[in-house]
């Protein structure tokens, strides 16, 4: 009797010999020959010293920069995606910038509503209801009608998170979400991301695959299950925390020591 073998799941991110360059100055190499696979539901933290190219790494993963070499697939589709026809596939990936990067001309609530108004043919009531839900979830209600410039950086970061979650992405890339936060905000972010990783109603109940960058790995030890480190134009894909503790690489030891 022929046993029916289950179809293997596509990796979420699949990088094969990818070379990454800086978006600001394309002549600067950020990481060379990166081989890395991220599976569905995994929670990765990529540690790297400051100014080592964390943002450029995420920009490449998010399809905002083209790799200068190698092959990169997102859920089986070659990246980056520029064609209109493949845009729905591209929107399965969300991006949270360091600092939120809200549009200065819009209020916090309008920023969160923007992707819904642009991509979804929803009615105004449906959009308002979804925005209210995201504002409550990220505790941004008091700043809903404020300009991003009048909101603290910690809250702008949350506005960026709420905006990225509006379209219910399956994968979320977060650029240094804990940088510059106080203990209260740090605790909130860690708890919220852990909840997203397990599956939250705000994203349809499915576990969200997470990739975050950090210049200090210590806060992530209890929540992120997988670790990689970027230094000297190399991405060290370490795996679990045992591999991190056993690593003899100086940069890894520094990132764990804080």
């Amino acid at each position: 009797m022929n046993a029916i073998t289950p179809k293997p799941k596509l990796p979420v991110l699949d990088l094969r010999g990818v070379n990454m360059v800086s978006r600001q100055s394309p002549a600067t190499m950020v990481a060379e020959k990166v081989n890395w696979t991220v599976q569905v539901g995994e929670f990765w933290v990529v540690g790297a010293p400051q100014h080592s190219g964390k943002t450029d790494l995420l920009m490449t993963l998010g399809g905002l920069s083209s790799p200068s070499g190698g092959e990169y697939y997102f859920l089986g589709e070659a990246m980056p995606i520029f064609e209109e026809s493949r845009l729905p596939h591209r929107l399965r990936l969300g991006f949270v910038f360091d600092g939120g990067q809200s549009l200065g001309q819009l209020t916090v609530a309008e920023n969160i509503a923007l992707p819904l108004r642009y991509h979804r043919g929803w009615s105004a009531d449906e959009i308002e209801s979804r925005v209210q839900e995201l504002l409550e979830m990220t505790e941004l209600m008091p700043w809903a009608n404020s300009s991003p410039a009048n909101v603290g950086r910690s809250w702008q970061q949350r506005a960026g998170l709420a905006r990225a979650l509006a379209l219910q992405p399956e994968v979320l890339l977060l650029d240094s979400p804990l940088t510059g936060l106080d203990a209260r905000h740090t605790t909130w972010w860690l708890a919220f991301l852990a909840q997203l990783s397990r599956g939250d109603r705000s994203v349809g109940g499915k576990p969200v695959t997470l990739v975050v960058t950090a210049d200090d790995l210590r806060p992530w030890r209890n929540d992120a299950g997988r670790v990689a480190c970027l230094a000297n134009r190399r991405l060290l894909v370490l795996g679990d925390w045992h591999a991190v503790d056993d690593s003899k690489e100086k940069v890894v030891q520094e990132l764990v020591a804080g």
Binding site: L64, L87, R90, G94, F97, L103, G104, R163
Partner: peptide
């Protein structure tokens, strides 16, 4: 001035990330 500021502050990348 508006667009240059938007570009310098990363708002253009934010739009691209939202598929706009």
């Amino acid at each position: 001035v508006e667009l240059g500021t938007a570009r310098a502050l990363g708002e253009v990348e934010a739009l691209e990330a939202l598929g706009i």
